[in-house]
Design a protein around this nucleic acid. Structure first.
Lengths: 343, 343
DNA sequence: CTGAAAGCGCTTACAG
DNA sequence: CTGAAAGCGCTTACAG
């Protein structure tokens, strides 16, 4: 937080209750009563105050009110990238639960940077948000210990925290991955590649785990070359796809570890003549309209976001208690790309 | 804004500068100096304060600081639906400009409800955000007059305000629509249907205008039945598509007014044997991977969001001035659905 | 029914 | 170098 946004131009100050009181010729507390609809104000006084409010264009400063009250009626939501469809679906769900509780929402994107995550989370805390929902980018969250210790509810979403005990809401990553890979195996594939995100991410590791478990359960080996993790940009995914399909140990099917990667894989495959089988983790809009249709293990971002927000507000009501960990099921959606056999 | 989120459980109060001062045995102002890195504190004093901060887990309350300072270092972004890809692309752009200015972002979704928009906008104002970016759902924004009058910068994004003068950033809606429809006409279509959003929305009206202008420019009539506006849910769009294609005056091509509608149209068409031409307003992820590829007039949400945020911060620096209206160009992307002739 | 005083947690302006 | 006093715009607790 660096530059002062108001550095240049000074805006004329907004009228305060004090100003309203002066114009109406009443005490400050009477203005407060009228503004807050408290009873016990004579109609005449109330009228004078109302007119002064109109005249001055007064609107209560909630930041000041909340400072006095000791609450902020806001929560912070820290995403990986608000521009990603998965993140934005989470946001919508969280926002709607927050609205039920009269809370405003601060949102921010970490862009997979642990530093940025920390900076934003602490900025939210410094504003004294009532709670924090974090899709973690970093691996160490001890920096949140003082806030957690003094009762700030924190829910980790999509990935768990590793160095701090907190409520957590996850997809069934390993289970979903097992389902996806078992599905490919059932269709005759024995050589299956896994394309993952950054390998230190919990989601990536768990989906890789599920992949390995499904392979092992079928008695299939996993060649080291078949596991390709890293950034999710198009170029890197395209290179990984090529390596998997044209390398020394070519695979006949691909399991893609998240929706960014799936998009990259689809683009890479569109430029090739062959049609390896593909199952993606997380659904994509229009996935059902591709030909062949995109077979996925769908997450339920609405359920993930809603659950995280509900946990948060429950904590807010009932205070500390045993840490909870909720796993939201995934669902295999069969549409075409996952049902072609090995050629 | 109804229930008090802290109603249930009382969290232990966080330590304040006063507490730190007491523990360190120094004055309040000395703590303030250390916390803010101001010069002129003896190393010994500074050390005592640092230790007390560590011991207590103190973190400055920015809400209090900002109240005293008179700024809030935050802006409000009011979208139609943060879960929509267009909205979330806008968010990402706005967020990144806000971050450059050290501002946090409140976000909220109006869900096309004018009441909800007003409620959220006023809630943001009550928190004294430094500026407001609004994708308007309602048609009357006079409720913002007091805030605008006292210097709050407001930028309307995607659609203009009708009853208040404010900076505005729009796509070239009519121009983009003309381009789309002229493209269909160039491919031999003479009977073209328009599917729009709610007809009171500026975007819908302008895109319809562009559609009519392109038809008129080619000397083509527009049958009343060819213009179908309304909610963007799947069922309604499917019904509109059917009406356009199977009604008394069937069309051979469709121009879809936004990305929600385009998705609905694609689904409706997937269930039919015929293949009318289609051009969509606003692009969709995977649109390029459909077969045939989806021809669209693409908007530039990153540019829209960035421009709106830049306008906002410029206002913040330089204060009032003539209202500005920026139009962001659209771009025809030819991929397949728009290039089939009438059957 | 009405309002003066104190305080929320900070910073500003000023005096030692 | 250090800190007591006043104040940001409200609400709380209390006295008339």
């Amino acid at each position: 937080m660096s530059t002062d946004p108001t550095a240049g131009h000074r805006t004329p100050p907004r009228p305060t209750m004090k100003d309203v009181a002066a114009v109406a010729g009443v005490g400050l507390k009477t203005v407060s009563r009228v503004v807050n609809g408290e009873p016990g104000v004579s109609p005449e006084m109330a009228g004078r105050v109302q007119r002064a409010i109109q005249q001055l264009g007064f609107r209560r400063n909630d930041s000041a009110r909340l400072l006095r009250t000791g609450t902020t009626a806001s929560i912070g939501l820290l995403l990986e990238d608000i521009g990603d469809p998965f993140s934005s679906a989470l946001s919508r769900a969280v926002e709607s639960v927050a609205a039920e509780h009269g809370c405003l929402l601060f949102t921010g994107s970490s862009a997979q940077s642990a530093d940025r995550e920390r900076e934003l989370a602490l900025a939210f805390c410094a504003r004294r948000v009532e709670g924090l929902i974090i899709v973690p980018a970093g691996r160490d969250h001890r920096y949140l210990q003082p806030e957690a210790g003094s009762g700030l509810p924190i829910v980790f979403l999509d990935r768990p925290a590793e160095t701090i005990a907190a409520d957590t809401v996850l997809s069934d990553n390993a289970g979903g991955a097992r389902t996806a890979v078992a599905h490919l195996i059932r269709h005759g594939h024995r050589r299956i590649g896994f394309l993952g995100d950054l390998p230190h991410l919990h989601t990536c590791r768990q989906r890789e785990r599920g992949y390995r478990e499904a392979m092992a359960a079928a008695g299939l080996p996993v060649e080291p070359d078949w596991v390709r993790t890293g950034p999710t940009d198009r170029a890197r995914v395209a290179a990984a796809v090529q390596r998997l399909l044209d390398g020394p140990e070519p695979v006949t099917a691909l399991f893609s570890g998240n929706n960014r990667i799936t998009v990259g894989v689809l683009h890479a495959l569109a430029a090739r003549p062959d049609r390896p089988a593909l199952v993606g983790f997380d659904d994509l809009e229009l996935g059902d309209l591709l030909r062949p249709g995109l077979t996925v293990v769908a997450q339920d971002p609405a359920e993930l976001g809603t659950t995280a927000a509900r946990l948060l507000f429950e904590r807010l009501r009932h205070g500390p208690g045993p840490v909870r960990r909720v796993e939201v099921p995934t669902r295999l959606i069969v549409r075409g790309t996952g049902e072609t056999g090995p050629s």
